[in-house]
């Protein structure tokens, strides 16, 4: 039986590894509870996104090769970060001039909730009695297409929220602007500090007004930026990564 379990390589982005180990733990525990055989390759490094987005894509070829050699042997690669997954999936074939890599990555690498939805067809059962504010991280939303963006006029769908349809007590905050960017944007957050802060504050105000009790997202980077502004202003909207919420419900 053990052989039929999917073998999942856990990809934990650099900043999650160092600053949010609890998100890594939650991701690992969810996958284990759902009967996956999970390995965390110890030699993994960064996917190279920060460099590439700064205009130094050409310097990341070795990082890309290193990533692939650490991960391609698994059935699936799963990560609690839409942004890093998007970078690997959408940019690696181009950076490495290897168009055939695309279909391989398409079938292999997934953001956590996307994996739970698309591959494990999970319907989370349990209770989570909170009003949850979902921040739609841009790279997960528009990049990976986890839900319909507000600009596009196709049939609505939302892979993330649909995972929670059976969860009792959970109410989603109704935001004024359902998918405006939080303003993090990697080095944008320091290069364009004033706008970055202004965008973050506006997102937080929207959540406060909507009565959000817990703020969540697919990406810890957005949450890190929003929490940092919140902390500086001495308000304290609790922040949980989706992995932590899911892990708590299905425990």
């Amino acid at each position: 039986m053990a052989q039929t379990k999917p073998h999942v390589g856990l990809f934990i982005p650099c900043y999650v590894d160092q600053f949010y180990p609890q998100v890594g733990k939650a991701t690992l525990e969810i996958l284990e509870k759902l009967n996956c055989n999970v390995s965390y390759p110890l030699n993994q490094t960064c996917c190279g996104q920060p460099l590439a987005n700064s205009g130094y894509e050409r310097d990341t070829k070795d990082a890309c090769q290193h990533f692939l050699s650490s991960f391609l042997q698994f059935d699936f690669i799963v990560s609690p970060s839409g942004s890093c997954v998007h970078h690997v999936k959408e940019r690696y074939p181009k950076i490495l001039h290897d168009p055939e890599l695309q279909s391989l990555l398409d079938s292999k690498i997934f953001e956590l909730t996307e994996f739970l939805h698309d591959i494990l067809s999970l319907e989370i059962q349990g209770t989570f009695s909170h009003k949850v504010g979902y921040h739609a991280s841009c790279h997960a939303l528009r990049g990976l297409g986890l839900s319909k963006s507000s600009e596009v006029n196709t049939a609505p769908f939302d892979k993330v929220k649909s995972l929670f349809e059976k969860v009792e007590g959970l109410e989603w905050s109704q935001l004024q602007r359902s998918d405006e960017c939080c303003g993090f944007g990697g080095t944008f957050s320091v290069k364009e500090e004033a706008i970055s802060l202004s965008m973050g504050k506006d997102r937080l105000t929207d959540h406060h007004e909507a009565g959000t009790e817990i703020l969540t997202a697919t990406d810890m980077s957005c949450l890190m930026h929003l929490q940092a502004i919140e902390d500086k202003n001495q308000s304290s909207l609790p922040v949980m990564h989706l992995a932590e919420i899911i892990n708590q419900i299905i425990s």
Binding site: N53, S149, E180, G185, G186, K191, E192, I195
Partner: peptide, 9 residues
């Protein structure tokens, strides 16, 4: 080109 978060909107 750097005045963007690459949000894709």
């Amino acid at each position: 080109p750097f005045a963007s978060t690459l949000c894709g909107s």
